[in-house]
């Protein structure tokens, strides 16, 4: 199998290969045109149906009628502890009411916080996911049955664009933002509450997968003359007890972390829809790639 110097091409072998594939090519070509004409549209239709269903779950506010959105209450709890309890009201992408009870460690005192009347907390994750799905739907709606796909590359390009939106929509829900503790302190969430939240408490609200999560951090101030090695904690979704940070020239350490959560059923649905649609897209791409690797072949 070694040729040194000039290219001595194995002409005979190649001609046999191309001749044998002639009939095969005809069949494949026919199959490919079926794929472009029929199958692609069938998949796109199915995708649209699924995504419309997903988009319907995110009740979209129409301008001027925000008040008519459905309100849902979620009771947050944890199987392992009962120091923190909360009831959150979700309306579209915003938390409109909150009712949080925190039993402080080392005391029997129960603290009670609610959202201020004039405030609501927007869950950016939900809005982003909704917008990404709608963009995916817009991409799909521009290619209805009347559109004639001419190449596999065209379908791949469309699928890539749709998959990017869907992956982002899903990632927004599955991967909450990582924040440092000072960043969390500056979000303004702590200023939402009445009575005002004391300086030794911090809360974080986010979506993780299909769950609405509330994390409460109990802090204590590190004395300036402490012998402890001060090492500020990095970005994370939840910080562990012992994490340290500095805010307004005061050093803090997290002493207790309480996490409570509650499943939002419709978010679970949307995640399932995203996963199914992504798989459908990938399968369509795989089907096309079978042919395109064949077209690439040119006998020399």
């Amino acid at each position: 199998m070694v040729v040194i110097g000039a290219d001595r091409s194995a002409v005979s072998e190649l001609s046999i290969m191309s001749a044998a594939s002639q009939a095969e090519r005809a069949v494949l070509e026919e199959e490919f045109s079926w794929l472009l004409k029929e199958e692609v549209h069938a998949v796109l239709k199915q995708l649209q149906d699924i995504l419309k269903e997903a988009s319907r779950r995110f009740s979209v506010p129409t301008p001027g009628m925000e008040g008519q959105l459905k309100q849902e209450n979620f009771i947050l709890g944890s199987s392992t502890m009962d120091q923190v309890k909360g009831v959150l009201t979700l309306q579209g992408d915003a938390l409109t009411q909150a009712d949080i009870n925190i039993k402080m460690a080392k005391s029997t005192q129960v603290m009670h916080f609610t959202f201020r009347e004039d405030k609501q907390w927007k869950l950016q994750q939900i809005q982003d996911a909704r917008n990404h799905v709608n963009q995916a739907l817009q991409l799909l709606s521009s290619r209805d049955e009347s559109y004639h796909f001419k190449t596999g590359a065209e379908v791949n390009k469309l699928m890539d664009a749709v998959m990017m939106q869907l992956t982002r929509a899903r990632n927004r829900l599955t991967t909450p933002a990582t924040m440092t503790l000072p960043e969390l302190a500056s979000t303004g969430l702590m200023r939402m509450f009445t009575p005002p939240m004391p300086g030794d408490l911090m809360v974080n609200l986010y979506i993780n997968l299909s769950k609405l999560c509330l994390t409460v951090y109990q802090l204590h101030v590190l004395q300036p003359n402490t012998t402890k090695n001060f090492k500020p904690a990095g970005s994370s979704v939840t910080h562990n007890p012992g994490s340290m940070f500095e805010l307004n020239n005061t050093k803090f350490e997290v002493s207790h972390v309480h996490k409570v959560e509650c499943v939002v059923p419709w978010l679970n649905d949307t995640l399932v829809f995203f996963t199914i649609s992504l798989q459908l897209c990938q399968q369509l791409k795989d089907k096309i790639s079978v042919f395109s690797s064949f077209w690439n072949y040119r006998p020399f």
Partner: peptide, 8 residues
């Protein structure tokens, strides 16, 4: 230049 071709 002198080269080597591997076919397989």
């Amino acid at each position: 230049p002198p080269h080597r071709t591997l076919r397989g």
